[in-house]
Design a protein around this nucleic acid. Sequence first.
DNA 1: ATGGTAGAACGTCTA
Length: 314
Amino acid sequence: MASVCPDAWIAILQEISAAFCHSFLFSSCAAPCGEKNILVSLPRIGNAADMRIVTWNINSLRLRMPLLARLCQDTSPDLVCLQETKVPDALFPLADVRALGFEHVVFRGMKGYNGVAILSRQPVTVLEETPDWCEKGDCRHIAVRHGTGVNAIDVHDFYVPAGGDVPDPVENPKFAHKLAFVEEARAWFSARDMRRTVLVGDLNIAPLEQDVWSHKQLLRIVSHTPAETERLLAWQQTGFIDAMREFVPPDEKLYTWWSYRNRDWSASNRGRRLDHVWVTPDLRPALRGMEVLRAARDWEKPSDHVPVLIDIDG
DNA sequence: ATGGTAGAACGTCTA
């Protein structure tokens, strides 16, 4: 068993035992750090956004089908990118998904773990040239082209490996896999000439200091180590901008995930921004709005991730 | 050295 430094364990314990230290919590992070709740119905943000994309690590599509229905009713997305569907292709609930208004559905799943899917109202074509990342046969990436001609938008949906608990690639093969995956993705995207491209998903890395509840205490926690954040930013810099941070400045807290192992996720608010929306710079002027659907963390039987929504003008 | 919760699937892995 590998050893983890005491600071790291303290951070983990604080993340999960909020009930015992309320006074500290409220002094360190009294309000929900500026994050807004989305309550019921969400109008299109700004003017005439032509494309609304929602990305969500749903943590079992079949279990949370009712929550997906609610999400789609509340936000009317054009495109939904899911991760951790945890359903083999043969068991994919295609009819249920189509009943939500998504006639065009692509998915890549396997038994038990992983799995990605893209749901669309309009026709999409699968971008078939995507690699078998780390040659593992995992179902962690699917990409489509939405629309045609000059208005087409390519959308990549990623589920990056979580990486286990020990932030050492020698002792922990899962961490080594995570680093290799991100490096491979960086290399692949750096060789592409990208236009009108959106990349979303659970990237399982919180790259900025304000993407975690305590930068200092999470520096040695998997998801926020320099080895990960440096590689993630190198991947991003192959041709993307961080679209969520176009709307929320980098010095403000922004989270999309709160551990299940926490008595009161909202009061302690020990979150991390593990889910991301990146766009190529040609789409920057088309960005109309972004929301982290924080209220979804309190839905019945919630995922530990909440959906992130982005509005892009034609 | 450790524990907490959740999901797929029914023992144990993964997050």
